Simulated scan of single mutants.
Amino acid sequence: MKKIFGLGLFILMICLLSACNDDDTSKEPSSKPTSETASTVAGDDIFQKSCITCHSSGDITGGQVKLDSTKIHADFQKKEDLYSFVEKKMPKSAPGSLSKEQYDAVVNYLWDQKE
Rank of each mutant, 00 (worst) to 15 (best):
Asp104Ala: 04
Met1Gly: 14
Leu67Ala: 06
Lys114Gly: 09
Ser56Gly: 15
Ala105Leu: 05
Ile60Pro: 02
Ser26Pro: 00
Cys54Phe: 08
Gln113Pro: 02
Asn21Met: 11
Ser30Ile: 01
Ser39Ile: 03
Leu82His: 03
Ser18Leu: 15
Val107Asn: 03
Asn108Trp: 04
Asn21Val: 11
Ser97Phe: 02
Asp68His: 03
Gly43Tyr: 05
Met1Leu: 10
Cys20Ile: 15
Lys78Gln: 15
Pro91Val: 00
Asn108Tyr: 06
Thr34Met: 06
Pro91Leu: 01
Leu110Asp: 05
Asp22Ser: 09
Ser39Cys: 12
Leu98Gly: 02
Ile14Cys: 07
Glu87Trp: 01
Pro95Asp: 03
Gly58Gln: 09
Ser18Cys: 14
Ser97Asn: 08
Tyr83Leu: 12
Asp75Asn: 15
Ser97Pro: 02
Pro91Trp: 02
Leu12Asp: 06
Pro29Ser: 11
Lys66Gly: 11
Phe10Gln: 05
Met1Ser: 14
Lys100Asn: 08
Leu9Met: 15
Ala38Arg: 11
Ile52His: 05
Ser18Gln: 10
Ile11Tyr: 03
Val41Ser: 12
Ile11Asn: 08
Ile11Glu: 06
Asp81Ile: 00
Ser30Trp: 04
Leu110Phe: 07
Leu98Lys: 04
Val106Gln: 00
Gly43Glu: 01
Pro91Glu: 03
Leu9Glu: 07
Asn108Val: 06
Asn21Lys: 08
Leu82Val: 02
Lys71Met: 05
Met90His: 03
Tyr103Ser: 00
Ala42Cys: 00
Cys54Gln: 02
Val86Ile: 15
Ser57Trp: 07
Asp112Leu: 06
Ser31Ile: 08
Thr61Met: 12
Ser69Tyr: 11
Leu82Asp: 00
Cys51Ala: 05
Thr61Leu: 09
Cys15Glu: 03
Phe5Cys: 04
Ile72Gly: 03
Lys92Ile: 06
Ser39Asp: 11
Leu12Asn: 06
Leu17Thr: 10
Phe5Gly: 06
Gln64Ala: 15
Phe47Ala: 02
Leu9Val: 12
His55Ile: 01
His73Gln: 07
Lys88Arg: 10
Phe5Ala: 13
Leu17Gln: 08
Lys71Trp: 09
Ile4Asp: 08
Leu110Met: 15
Leu82Thr: 01
Gln102Phe: 01
Ser84Asn: 11
Leu7His: 04
Lys88His: 08
Ala105Tyr: 01
Leu82Asn: 00
Asp44Lys: 13
Ser97Val: 06
Phe76Tyr: 14
Gln102Gly: 00
Phe76Trp: 10
Gln64Phe: 12
Gln48Met: 12
Gly63Ser: 12
Leu67Ser: 05
Leu12Tyr: 09
Asp23Leu: 14
Asn108Ala: 14
Gln102Asn: 14
Lys89Cys: 02
Thr70Ile: 09
Cys54Met: 07
Asp75Arg: 08
His73Tyr: 07
Gly43Ile: 07
Asp44Met: 15
Gln64Lys: 14
Pro29Phe: 10
Val65Pro: 01
Tyr109Ser: 04
Glu115Ser: 14
Met90Ser: 04
Leu9Pro: 03
Met13His: 07
Tyr103Pro: 00
Gly63Trp: 06
Leu110Asn: 08
Phe10Lys: 03
Asp104Gly: 01
Ser84Arg: 05
Val86Pro: 00
